[in-house]
Amino acid sequence: MARRRTLRPEEEELWQAVARTAQPLHPGRVRSHLPKDDPAPQPPEPRPPAHPPFPHFNLGEKVRHLPGHDLAPTMRDHLAAQPLRMDAKNYARMARGKLAPEARIDLHGMTLTEAHPELIRFVLNAHADGLRLVLVITGKGSRRTEDHGPIPQRQGVLRHQVPHWLRLPPLGSVVLQVAVAHLKHGGEGAYYVYLRRSR
């Protein structure tokens, strides 16, 4: 196969003369063998940043901590948002620590698999005995190791799990209200469990 070479100036003039007399077979697809002058590439338009720029800072200045952002509400807020199913006057007395629990169970230090059956047994027995207000102590939970993972781990797993257990069968049918205990009964590390009347 012959190698293509560039035309000399006199050959170029001859070629242009012949090309002007030729009829193209496909007029829309006429191509010249001459290289076209490519237009200079346009610089891309600047796009606005996806995130706001960092606030101005000076080297060596102290870190300005922004307020923390916790997507999960506290257990106190979560329980306070639940509808009130018991007498409002008794609920107010219970929340102020004026009602004394008739029985208590301490789940502090147990694992989830140990605590769940103990809680079921305790609450069902208290209901069968006609008790109305019991105290469930979970402890606040302690963090043994620093949490450096991408997904934050909850502190006090038992403290967050007990209110869910109290809403699920078999306990949901006998529990009327759950509230965080008053400080004199354990505060954030304990729950008041107000039971329905036994029939």
Score class of each variant (00 low, 15 high):
residue 74 T to P: 07
residue 19 A to H: 09
residue 115 A to Q: 03
residue 13 E to P: 00
residue 49 P to Y: 00
residue 36 K to N: 10
residue 150 P to K: 15
residue 54 F to R: 12
residue 85 R to K: 13
residue 110 M to E: 13
residue 180 V to Q: 06
residue 160 H to L: 14
residue 198 S to R: 14
residue 28 G to P: 01
residue 29 R to W: 04
residue 62 K to M: 13
residue 116 H to F: 06
residue 161 Q to N: 08
residue 101 P to Y: 02
residue 153 Q to M: 13
residue 60 G to E: 10
residue 11 E to W: 06
residue 171 L to W: 03
residue 181 A to F: 05
residue 30 V to H: 00
residue 87 D to L: 09
residue 186 G to I: 04
residue 175 V to Q: 00
residue 123 V to R: 00
residue 111 T to N: 07
residue 22 A to H: 04
residue 126 A to D: 02
residue 36 K to R: 12
residue 11 E to S: 10
residue 197 R to W: 07
residue 2 A to Q: 14
residue 30 V to R: 04
residue 6 T to W: 14
residue 75 M to I: 12
residue 72 A to V: 11
residue 144 R to S: 11
residue 116 H to P: 02
residue 95 A to G: 00
residue 53 P to L: 02
residue 161 Q to R: 09
residue 33 H to Q: 11
residue 58 N to V: 11
residue 46 P to V: 08
residue 1 M to C: 13
residue 73 P to E: 01
residue 148 H to N: 13
residue 130 G to K: 04
residue 140 K to H: 08
residue 133 L to E: 02
residue 84 L to H: 02
residue 185 H to V: 06
residue 98 K to P: 00
residue 161 Q to G: 03
residue 91 Y to F: 12
residue 105 I to V: 15
residue 68 G to Y: 13
residue 171 L to Y: 03
residue 82 Q to T: 07
residue 183 L to F: 13
residue 71 L to W: 06
residue 69 H to P: 04
residue 98 K to S: 08
residue 132 R to P: 01
residue 49 P to H: 00
residue 55 P to M: 03
residue 189 G to V: 00
residue 173 S to I: 14
residue 179 A to K: 06
residue 49 P to E: 00
residue 75 M to Y: 07
residue 136 V to F: 05
residue 175 V to E: 01
residue 192 Y to V: 06
residue 186 G to E: 07
residue 134 V to E: 01
residue 150 P to E: 12
residue 35 P to W: 02
residue 161 Q to P: 08
residue 172 G to Y: 03
residue 122 F to H: 05
residue 95 A to I: 07
residue 159 R to H: 07
residue 6 T to N: 15
residue 182 H to P: 00
residue 129 D to C: 03
residue 56 H to T: 14
residue 135 L to C: 09
residue 182 H to A: 12
residue 185 H to Y: 15
residue 168 L to Y: 08
residue 195 L to H: 02
residue 158 L to D: 09
residue 41 P to L: 07
residue 73 P to V: 01
residue 80 A to T: 08
residue 93 R to F: 06
residue 41 P to S: 07
residue 154 R to E: 12
residue 110 M to Y: 15
residue 76 R to L: 13
residue 197 R to D: 10
residue 130 G to L: 04
residue 143 R to E: 12
residue 153 Q to V: 14
residue 170 P to N: 02
residue 89 K to D: 13
residue 66 L to T: 14
